[in-house]
Design a protein around this nucleic acid. Structure first.
Lengths: 157, 157
DNA sequence: GCTTGCCTTCGAGCGCGCTCGAAAGTCTAT
DNA sequence: ATAGACTTTCGAGCGCGCTCGAAGGCAAGC
């Protein structure tokens, strides 16, 4: 319950989250942290929360990235665990991890702790990619801001 | 000549360029700065310099993003101006600008100074997108580093 | 003059990550 | 009991940004 609120607050917050919120988020994203209470979400609710389409959520399931339970009618029920997984997935996707790598990683997660060394290597690679991307983006930002300054009449040069 | 060397040095440098190098780069990327000397590059040479394939360079030309001259045999000749344009294009592409937006922007550039207000707005939007992306990447980096710490036995918690 | 290797144009194909629509089942309200 | 808004599965389609291969021209060396 408190977890869901936190997720919603974090998702809603456009600004920089505080350090404590980030720590809380990391705990939330840790697959070993399982929220026991909280009612499961339908595919539409989960999609709204995460910011993806129901179609995409079904596609992710089909690709083995998430395994929501089903109710008596066969409807998907996304638990807090599933939602945390989805948040993780979107973070990785947004940072440029390919579906293929993500599928590989999740498959390893589902195989248990013996796969931790390979998971760790994947995350190390991912970290390098992210750092490289941030470097590229920083250069692009400088170029863009230079153009803006020029268009503004380069008041300082 | 010095310009080409500089471009090559910048392209070769993996590390953070110094502030003065960045300034020099911005000047190089400014379309109004035209290098008069320097021999033009073939499509293969230009591709190697910029880090794209010859196929992609031809594709960019087809899309109107760059207009290399042709020699007597119809071969493309990429001038320093064209190379600067290509560096700019790759920066914008790498920072997530779509081909559509880039085509629009370049079309405006070729129409002359009267289009500066719209170009400026495009660059402002692009800046916002880059800043947002950097924020997303920073979050993903934190998540990734958290995972790594956990896999390393979370020595600090 | 022939080979080698680069260049040209053209149009088709491809990998990624969704995205959609059809056809049918389920739940709720009236 | 009927409407309307959800849900399911399935397979096809799509937009983006290349990427490739075929068919042929040009330049230089043997």
């Amino acid at each position: 319950m408190a977890t869901e609120d936190l997720i919603e607050r974090i998702l809603a917050a456009g600004d920089e989250p505080s350090a404590s919120v980030i720590d809380a988020l990391h705990e939330l994203l840790d697959d070993t942290t399982i929220e026991t209470s909280a009612t499961p979400k339908s595919v539409a609710e989960a999609a709204r929360l995460i910011g993806l389409s129901p179609h995409t959520l079904r596609y992710y399931e089909q690709e083995g990235l998430v395994r929501p339970a089903r109710n008596a009618s066969g409807y998907r029920e996304y638990s807090a665990f599933d939602l945390r997984r989805l948040i993780f997935l979107t973070r990785m996707r947004l940072s440029g991890m390919t579906m293929q790598d993500l599928k590989r990683y999740i498959a390893l997660v589902e195989q248990g702790p013996s796969t931790i060394p390979e998971r760790r290597r994947i995350m190390l690679d991912q970290r390098d990619r992210i750092v490289r991307q941030i470097r590229e983006l920083t250069l692009a930002l400088e170029t863009t801001e230079y153009k803006i300054r020029v268009y503004d009449g380069h008041p300082e040069g």
